[in-house]
């Protein structure tokens, strides 16, 4: 195995595109190293992207934030403005693994690992984040919900890297929340994950919303019906019941070692309601 740590994104793309064997990007490494250790993957080339400054920064851009794909969860949490603007997303990124893992794991890695249960991906989808990809043919932007197609399958072409995420500018009284269900309090993979981002008008009516679910289908979902259920409401009982139903209707989960179909569907509704209420509470103060 060859290890390379280029300091420009173009050099990284060149290395990845030029590798005839199996190439892998190393960001936080918290998934890749585990897979290498257990012989799930045996790359011929590993390209460490942490020396590329563009990928390691959080910048304000167009009223929003551009977050480098290799910024760690701990760094997101320590950022001066981000946790206040996107508390749900920062929480989601910091639910990935332990304190130790948060010091390494990145949202880019979380997305590109291609797991339907990735915690930060529903957060990004709810946030309406756009990913900027850089590849041999230049740069392009894709909505985060369009990147993961199926377990371990991404819409990236050979040599393409996720460079950063653009979190859009948002009006006043906007906020988000992410909740996941795990059997323990920490250190588990989400059995169900749910992100909700919303905006309230001065009267408290929800004017915009995005709801996403993780671990309930082959890929993280943007659930438009769930958002519609609360838009135009003050998240009263009836709206929340519709939200729950829409979230459950969107689920196409499997039975596995982490949960049953029935359980995942049930809990998806519960989390959607709870996350929406948290986001609402936060938005009132934002």
């Amino acid at each position: 195995m060859r290890y390379e740590a280029p300091d420009t994104i173009d050099a990284a793309v060149k290395l990845l595109a030029g590798e005839a064997g199996l190439a892998r990007v190393l960001a936080g490494g918290t998934d890749l190293l585990v897979q290498m250790r257990s012989d799930v993957v045996s790359p011929d080339l590993v390209v460490d992207i942490k020396k590329i400054s563009e990928l390691r920064q959080v910048k304000e851009e167009a009223g929003g934030f551009r977050v480098g794909a290799a910024v760690t969860g701990a760094e997101l949490k320590e950022h001066a403005k981000l946790p206040k603007a996107w508390p749900g997303l920062v929480e989601a990124a910091n639910l990935i693994g332990s304190t130790q893992v948060q010091g390494r794991a990145t949202m880019g890695g979380n997305l590109c690992n291609g797991s339907p249960a990735a915690d930060s991906v529903p957060g990004l989808i709810a946030a309406g984040a756009t990913a900027t990809l850089v590849g041999p043919n230049g740069r392009r932007d894709l909505k985060v919900e369009d990147i993961m197609l199926a377990p371990r399958k991404l819409a990236l072409t050979k040599g393409e890297i996720v460079a950063s995420f653009l979190l859009p500018a948002r009006p006043a009284r906007s906020s988000d929340a992410y909740l996941r269900f795990i059997p323990r309090t920490e250190m588990d993979i989400a059995v169900v994950g749910c992100g909700v981002s919303l905006t309230l008008d001065p009267s408290g009516t929800c004017t915009a919303a995005r709801v996403s679910l993780g671990a309930v289908a082959a890929r993280p979902l943007l659930v438009e019906d769930a958002a519609k259920a609360i838009i135009g409401t003050k998240l009263n009982h009836a709206a929340l019941a519709k939200l729950e139903a829409a979230a459950r209707a969107a689920c196409k989960p499997i039975d596995d070692k982490r949960g049953t179909v029935e359980f995942r569907i049930d809990v998806a509704g519960v989390l959607a309601r709870r996350a929406a209420l948290i986001a609402q509470e936060r938005a009132r103060k934002a």
């Binding site: 585990v34 460490d48 942490k50 760690t72 701990a74 304190t99 130790q100 893992v101 010091g103 390494r104």
Partner: peptide, 13 residues
């Protein structure tokens, strides 16, 4: 200065 699991870091890093 950052707490990590050394099993998830490459030596070369």
């Amino acid at each position: 200065g950052r707490l990590v699991c050394s099993c998830l870091v490459l030596g070369v890093e």
